[in-house]
Design a protein around this nucleic acid. Sequence first.
DNA 1: AATGAATGAGCCTTCATTCAT
DNA 2: GATGAATGAAGGCTCATTCAT
Lengths: 227, 227, 227, 227
Amino acid sequence: MTPVVQEVVLLPNMKNNAAAQETRRKLMDAGGEIFAERGLYAATIKQITDRAGVNVAAINYHFRDKFELYAAVVRYALSMTPTPLSAPAGRSPEERLRDDIAFMIADRYDPSRPAWRSTLLAHEFAQPTAALEAVMEELIRPRANFIEDIVRGILGPGASDDDVVRAALSIGGQCFFYLYHDEIIRRLHPGLIHENNSEELVSHITEFSLAALHAMRKRQKQAPQRR
Amino acid sequence: MTPVVQEVVLLPNMKNNAAAQETRRKLMDAGGEIFAERGLYAATIKQITDRAGVNVAAINYHFRDKFELYAAVVRYALSMTPTPLSAPAGRSPEERLRDDIAFMIADRYDPSRPAWRSTLLAHEFAQPTAALEAVMEELIRPRANFIEDIVRGILGPGASDDDVVRAALSIGGQCFFYLYHDEIIRRLHPGLIHENNSEELVSHITEFSLAALHAMRKRQKQAPQRR
Amino acid sequence: MTPVVQEVVLLPNMKNNAAAQETRRKLMDAGGEIFAERGLYAATIKQITDRAGVNVAAINYHFRDKFELYAAVVRYALSMTPTPLSAPAGRSPEERLRDDIAFMIADRYDPSRPAWRSTLLAHEFAQPTAALEAVMEELIRPRANFIEDIVRGILGPGASDDDVVRAALSIGGQCFFYLYHDEIIRRLHPGLIHENNSEELVSHITEFSLAALHAMRKRQKQAPQRR
Amino acid sequence: MTPVVQEVVLLPNMKNNAAAQETRRKLMDAGGEIFAERGLYAATIKQITDRAGVNVAAINYHFRDKFELYAAVVRYALSMTPTPLSAPAGRSPEERLRDDIAFMIADRYDPSRPAWRSTLLAHEFAQPTAALEAVMEELIRPRANFIEDIVRGILGPGASDDDVVRAALSIGGQCFFYLYHDEIIRRLHPGLIHENNSEELVSHITEFSLAALHAMRKRQKQAPQRR
DNA sequence: AATGAATGAGCCTTCATTCAT
DNA sequence: GATGAATGAAGGCTCATTCAT
């Protein structure tokens, strides 16, 4: 699992100065926070530049306009959200599923990464912009493929593509809920999520999903003609 | 299952005329569409009043301001989204689970109800306003309670509250994904959701979840001391 | 000679109210002054709305934006600048030429019409916008055609089209200089133009031009084969 | 006829290097084009520095600010527009008039001189800045004086000053129209001006004007008491 | 001598709201 | 009950200018 390298898209006649990169980073950090707090449209560039400690015109200079800044912030968030690329040899599908779920949950609450990432993406999911394309291709689809591989490993070759996809979506849906809608969960059950029980959470999702997958597999064997 | 009665909150010096009610309704219908398309902050009252075919000042007259209109639209959406309140006697928990999932999916794509409801709520989940409170109390919490009851019925009295809640969230998460994020699913797998396979979808979620619940129950029996 | 009727172009859902028309007129009067003083790009809408005594947003409401206001002001200026349409029967071409030159000069300094008209058009000539099209079709071309008719009447049927056009441009050029560049003339000869000598000015241009035309005609007769 | 020597005004602490002079010249060339295309206020220094291929800060360094650059460009245009200073001995006033008109028209379309000169001056005439003073003193007044001399030579000593001035303005007005408003002429008569007929144009203006002048002279003799 | 970066001021425009009818 | 008109506030963006290197 390696982080995506963030490609810095530079406007014409702009040198890749260290100072300029620092300003860009400050703007993207501040933009991440503000866009997550308020959304693309309710956020104002003044709020962002104030928090970044720079002048409003800096956005025009470094990103052309508010929307380009937003797109850069989304890419920035993606660059800080690693996708699983490989697994140690010898891990069973079951172990890889647990690893992956644990990985996503851990990343979500990783204190070394900005907490605004999931909120920002939640906005993007509710109100897609052009940036959703990048989110799909760099984050969602790799993860979906990864889970589908695991599912296919567990269900075996007898499973139909639709079965694989639906099972993967059932797993992904559970994770998605915790990753992007923990506000709802907190309102429903204030004490459920806290910093010391992510282990139990991961175990629950893993076991819930594995039990379902194993049952699907067993049912296929009993009715192999069904497809 | 009966729809929540929509309480019409009338501003002072406002007569409850039929004509006025008609204008209110047109504004809420148009507001539902526009707020769903653009979100609360990107939507403008002019877009709404244009689509409703009324004057801008009508919003002030009928709803005081844009935010009150939005709140009214959310309540309007809730009033059109029935919650399961009771089930026929004699249905097993398993049957009730399937009924409920089928019910939610059917309601989501019910052509007699406006399609903007889920998009509007998706916005509200990503960027909560004061209206989220009503959404929680009138839509989410009743449904969560309903599912938790079913889960408790299946897991039996030996299940811990946390187990029940987590299992219910696993089921709810799957449904939530299909109800409020079908855009993502469509982008991932364009052909997966179509009008003639909601039956298969319901079956999948139901069987996936039941298999998991039954496995949880069996494990509890084997390790009853665990809690 | 009848003034062009000013067609009021109204934006959607805008009634042709008397009060609204008054505001429109105030904005166009102020816009005429400011645009003439500063030009389209150096003028600010705040200067205009301040002088008009209305709010900045009124421009958006009545004219959509600054450029539409400018175009309306140009049309407004055209509507206040009558074009010669007919001449009393029995006037000789020579008399009609004098009448027309006198008419243009008189209109230029007519105290009952805003003085900013010519300055505004001078800007438009130096830096054409889309409005120049209207200026050409409604002001310049009718006047050019009129003068060409007179010239043709004097030169007779033996004159080539190019001769007619060039002669008309020689006359028009003289008038244009006085109409739109009196600033230059004043700087060159401060005392030349004053309110009591427009008669002499008209006489000079008329006689200068007629002498030239008559000489052209005589030369044609001497060399009729030339064409 | 010798071009006015362009005095290079150097800001303090600026060395008169060849490289610096090259940058100054590039900025003035680019500025001439852009200022002519857009006018002083619509032109931006970024457009100019981009076209010049230098950094924005160069304008501040070489010209202090945008307005000083504009003034320098106007002076630059003047320095490239020669004024008639003397005529070969033995030329009659009639011949000198033709020479001068031919000279102005030829200079206007001289491919070895930038075409933006007349457009730039047309802007300056419509919207005078402090630079107009220089234009008047270095370009317009010398030329006016020159033409007035010729006119006085033709009209003879009996002509009043006002007659001389008005006649000179009639000639200058015709030239001015062709020199600074050929856009209008092209719109009126698209085919009239082309590269191969400037001879006919010069002949027309010359003969038109001479005929008028000769008639004026004859009339004076007939009515010598008039003054 | 030149440049990349940064900034404050100001402009156009939009928007929600209110007023008068 | 509804509407056209008007308005203050604020937002995004641009621009000329300056700073530090």
